[in-house]
Simulated assay, not measured.
Amino acid sequence: MAVAQVLRSEWTKIRSVNSTALTLGLAVVVSVGLGMLISALSKNEFDKLSAEDKLTFDPTFTAFSGLTLGQLALVVFGVLVVASEYSTGMIRTSLAAVPQRATFLFSKIAVATLLALVVALVTSFAAFFLGQAMLGNHSTDLGSPNVLRAVIGAALYMTLMAMFAMGVAAILRSPMLSLGILMPFLFLVSPILGNVSATKKVAQYFPDQAGSKIMQVVIPPDDDTPYGPWGGLLILALWAVVAMVVGYALLKKRDA
């Protein structure tokens, strides 16, 4: 089957599932809404901050506060795109129609990634502009140094997290198992280990922590991370690539 036909087929599958619109819609609403709320609260509390905290206040990163939770919706989207066919048994039909497993898997990932990127771009720009509106006099703009990089980087970060989830789902072949590992890891394990001095140096190489550096404009003076914003995004990209390659290798080896 031609690649173009497979791409159209995967697009039809994705848009015909109700959970697609639900998860992507949640990613936007949660990211933007929570970012606006935290930005408004930050504006009200700004005068109470210490002089040091005021100097290191990052209005861009503050507007992206909701992305930490909103990204989980994109992770769910990535998992469901790949693993839902295993739970329904449709994977046998899909592989019978497209026996070239590389074409099957990477066409699915390509379509889902493009959709995730579009949603992530809308989310990051909306979160930024609405967050700055809530911050009032403490806001910044796209023309300020590194701000546009952070806004575009936020979209790339969310997209890569969705791709990482797709790779994990291809490895585990189960929506419940994939989400049962990813959700606690991203929501509990990574933040906890990142705040413990004994494990912080390891946790900073986790995909979420490394990738989120791209969204920071103001770097705290006590930040000793050994990589910069683009280096962190590269680490996240490597996590995503490794997960997808391993997922393909297992798909090629295993039965449907």
Results as ranks from 00 to 15, higher is better:
Ala243Val: 09
Met1Thr: 07
Asn18Trp: 15
Tyr157Val: 09
Gly70Thr: 06
Asn195Asp: 12
Ala97Met: 06
Leu24Asn: 02
Leu156Arg: 09
Val29Tyr: 04
Gly180Asn: 01
Ala240Leu: 07
Phe129Thr: 12
Gly153Leu: 07
Lys54Phe: 07
Leu142Gln: 01
Met215Gln: 14
Pro99Thr: 00
Thr23Gln: 08
Thr103Ser: 11
Ser190Arg: 01
Lys252Tyr: 12
Leu172Gln: 13
Pro145Trp: 02
Val217His: 04
Met176Ile: 15
Lys252Asp: 15
Thr113Gln: 04
Glu10Lys: 05
Pro226Phe: 10
Gly33Asp: 02
Asp141Val: 11
Phe61Thr: 00
Thr68Tyr: 12
Val81Ser: 06
Arg15Val: 12
Val218Thr: 13
Ala63Tyr: 09
Val98Gly: 04
Leu72His: 03
Ser197Cys: 02
Thr60Gln: 15
Ser50Met: 12
Ile14Gly: 06
Ser94Tyr: 06
Met176Trp: 09
Val3Asp: 04
Val217Ala: 07
Ala40Asp: 07
Val111Met: 09
Asp224Asn: 13
Ser42Met: 13
Leu22Pro: 02
Ala127Gln: 02
Lys108Arg: 15
Val76Ala: 13
Asp208Thr: 12
Ala198Pro: 04
Phe57Gly: 03
Gly180Ala: 00
Val79His: 01
Val151Cys: 01
Lys13Thr: 12
Pro207Asp: 03
Phe128Pro: 00
Val147Gly: 02
Phe128Arg: 00
Phe164Met: 15
Leu121Thr: 03
Asn44Arg: 14
Val217Trp: 11
Phe185Cys: 04
Lys13Met: 11
Gly228Thr: 09
Thr20Leu: 14
Leu80Phe: 10
Pro229Asn: 12
Arg101His: 11
Ser212Pro: 02
Met163Lys: 00
Thr225Ala: 00
Ala110Cys: 05
Pro175Phe: 06
Ala110Leu: 14
Pro175Val: 02
Arg15Lys: 14
Ile91Gln: 00
Ser124Ala: 11
Lys252Phe: 13
Pro226Ser: 05
Thr23Cys: 11
Lys43Cys: 01
Leu55Cys: 08
Gly167Trp: 10
Met1Asp: 06
Leu238Gln: 00
Thr159Arg: 09
Arg92Met: 10
Gly136Trp: 08
Gln209His: 12
Val98Asp: 04
Pro145Gly: 05
Lys201Tyr: 05
Gly167His: 12
Leu121Ala: 00
Thr12Ala: 15
Phe206Glu: 14
Leu26Thr: 09
Val6Trp: 03
Lys43His: 10
Met1Pro: 09
Val3Ala: 07
